[in-house]
Amino acid sequence: MILAKMLQSTHVITEGSIEKRFLIYVHARQQGEWVQKITGVDPLTNKDQLLKFCPIKKITKDYPPTLFLHGTKDTDVPYEQSVFMRAALLQKGVKTKFITIPNGEHVFDKEFEHPIVQDSLKQMMEFLRQYV
């Protein structure tokens, strides 16, 4: 906790080591402060204000083509959130692609050479070539 507090700053930081940022992230998650740290909104007292950060509330027919690449064992972002977002995009006619990494974690590509990861990355590149 002391280290995480020492790494915080009142200045906007645009660069920094991933290790330091990860320590702040872990501390905030463990303390239940992550949402408030990144939004400045207390989710217990201002839940309605958090909706301005919710992408599913901002979907229009002009939303850009969207790629989802998600592991089913992600403990940071629930897999179902991508399922819900994709369904909402499809309802508005937005082009989407959903790639699932079975048993994949949040950092699914740490097994970079695994055939499923390699195939997923190829699909991702095809999507990007088509829409970007």
Rank of each mutant, 00 (worst) to 15 (best):
M1K: 08
I2D: 08
A4N: 04
A4V: 07
M6Y: 14
M6D: 12
M6A: 13
T10D: 15
H11G: 09
V12C: 10
V12T: 14
V12G: 09
I13D: 06
I13R: 15
T14M: 08
E15P: 04
G16W: 13
S17H: 05
I18T: 15
I18Y: 11
E19P: 02
E19H: 11
R21K: 13
R21M: 13
L23A: 13
I24Q: 07
I24F: 05
I24N: 02
V26A: 06
H27K: 02
H27C: 05
A28H: 02
R29S: 13
Q30P: 03
Q31R: 09
Q31K: 12
G32F: 01
G32A: 02
Q36W: 00
Q36K: 04
I38F: 01
G40K: 01
G40D: 09
G40N: 03
G40W: 00
G40L: 01
V41Y: 00
D42E: 10
L44E: 14
T45R: 04
T45C: 04
K47C: 12
D48M: 10
L51W: 02
K52P: 03
P55A: 03
P55Q: 05
I56W: 06
K58G: 13
K58E: 15
K58W: 07
I59G: 02
K61R: 14
D62Y: 14
Y63E: 07
P65H: 04
L67I: 15
F68R: 06
H70N: 11
H70I: 07
G71W: 00
T72W: 00
T72I: 01
K73M: 09
D74K: 00
V77S: 03
V77Q: 01
P78H: 04
Q81A: 05
S82P: 09
F84E: 11
M85E: 11
A87T: 15
A87V: 14
L90A: 12
L90M: 14
Q91A: 15
Q91G: 15
G93E: 12
G93W: 08
K95R: 08
T96H: 03
T96C: 04
T96Q: 01
T96F: 02
K97L: 08
F98G: 11
I99L: 07
I99Y: 02
I99H: 05
I101Y: 00
N103F: 04
E105Q: 08
V107S: 10
F108A: 08
D109N: 14
E111M: 07
F112P: 05
F112M: 13
F112T: 13
F112C: 12
E113G: 06
E113T: 14
E113Y: 06
H114M: 01
P115A: 10
P115T: 12
P115D: 10
I116P: 00
V117S: 01
Q118A: 12
D119Y: 02
S120D: 06
M124V: 04
E126S: 07
F127Q: 05
L128K: 03
L128C: 06
L128P: 11
R129M: 07
R129L: 08
Y131F: 11
Y131K: 03
